[in-house]
C-alpha cells in the first residue's frame, strides 16, 4: 500500500506542494468563504499548510485511512478505498448526502457549497499518477524531501530510523497515523503535538467502521426476530381472546 510521510521538522513552509496540487487538478484560485474552515482546506484546496507558532508548518491533506470511515458510511459507494492506498471519489455515484463529511474524524472532505451541482472534494493522492508509477504531485514538488512517497511499510521503517537517529527530537517518538483509527496512509513525524489535526484529541486505534458494524450485523436478525415476535404475539393474544370468549357466559361484549 502506497503512503506519504511528512516530516514537520523538515518542512520550510514554501507551499510548493499546495501549488503543485492546484496546478495538477487545475483548481482555480480560492478565497475565504463563509463555509471554509480555519485550516486552508476547501473544495479548491485539497492540501494546505497550517502554520503554527515557532516556524512549524503542518501540511494537511486526506489521511487515506486503511479502514476509512467515509467509505464505510457512503450509502451509494461514491467513495472507494483502492488497493494502491488512495481513497477516491466518483462524481457520478454521489447523491450529496454529506455523510462522509460527518463521519471523517479529521474533517477532510470538503463540499462545493457555492455550486448548483456540488460534489465532495478532497485529496485523492493523485490516483492516476500512482497507477502510472509516478509519485503524487505534492511529494514530487517538495524541495526539502519533507514529504515523501513510498510503500507504507518502508516509510514506517524510515520514520523509525529517523526517530532512532534523533532521540528526543520527535514528539513522544510517535509516528502520527501509524495506529490511529486503524492506521492511515498519510504519516507524520513531528516535534510538536499534532493532535489538533483530528476533531478528538485522543483518537482510538480502533478503526471507526467497527463502531457501526455490530449495529449493521444486528439488522437481519432484528428484522426477522421482530417479524416472528409480532406474528407470535398476534397468534397468542388471538388465542387467549378466543378462549376468554368461549369461557365467558353468553351475552358477552360481542
Amino acid at each position: 500500500m502506497k503512503a506519504i510521510l511528512t516530516d514537520i521538522t523538515k518542512c520550510i513552509g514554501c507551499f510548493k506542494c499546495v501549488k503543485a496540487c492546484k496546478e495538477t487538478y487545475d483548481l482555480p484560485g480560492d478565497y475565504p468563504r463563509r463555509w471554509t474552515q480555519n485550516d486552508g482546506l476547501s473544495a479548491l484546496n485539497w492540501t494546505s499548510i497550517v502554520i503554527k507558532p515557532d516556524d512549524h508548518f503542518i501540511r494537511k491533506q486526506c489521511r487515506h485511512c486503511i479502514e476509512p470511515a467515509c467509505v464505510s458510511v457512503c450509502p451509494v459507494g461514491a467513495l472507494k478505498k483502492t488497493k494502491e492506498g488512495p481513497v477516491i471519489y466518483d462524481n457520478d455515484k454521489c447523491m450529496g448526502c454529506r455523510y462522509c463529511m460527518m463521519a471523517c474524524p479529521y474533517g477532510i472532505p470538503r463540499y462545493d457549497w457555492d455550486q448548483r451541482i456540488p460534489y465532495i472534494r478532497k485529496c485523492i493522492m493523485c490516483y492516476d499518477r500512482i497507477k502510472n508509477g509516478q509519485q503524487p504531485a505534492c511529494t514530487a514538488a517538495c524541495p526539502e524531501e519533507a514529504t515523501i512517497f513510498g510503500e507504507r511499510d518502508e516509510l514506517i521503517a524510515i520514520a523509525r530510523q529517523r526517530i532512532l537517529d534523533n532521540p528526543g527530537k520527535y514528539y513522544q517518538d510517535k509516528i502520527w497515523g501509524e495506529h490511529e483509527v486503524g492506521g492511515t496512509c498519510v504519516l507524520y513525524l513531528s516535534d510538536i503535538d499534532l493532535s489538533f489535526l483530528s476533531y478528538d484529541r485522543k483518537l482510538d486505534n480502533e478503526p471507526l467502521p467497527h463502531t457501526t458494524e455490530a449495529a449493521m450485523k444486528a439488522v437481519p436478525p432484528v428484522f426477522a426476530g421482530m417479524g416472528a415476535a409480532m406474528i407470535g404475539l398476534h397468534w397468542v393474544i388471538g388465542r387467549r381472546m378466543k378462549r376468554e370468549q368461549e369461557n365467558k357466559p353468553k351475552g358477552g361484549s360481542e
Binding site: V73, P75, M95, Y99, P209, M216
Partner: peptide, 16 residues
C-alpha cells in the same frame, strides 16, 4: 440522484 441507494448497494452503511 436520490434513487442511487436502490441500485448501488452498500450494506455496511447505516444510511443505506
Amino acid at each position: 440522484n436520490i434513487w442511487h441507494p436502490v441500485v448501488q448497494w452498500q450494506h455496511h452503511s447505516a444510511l443505506f
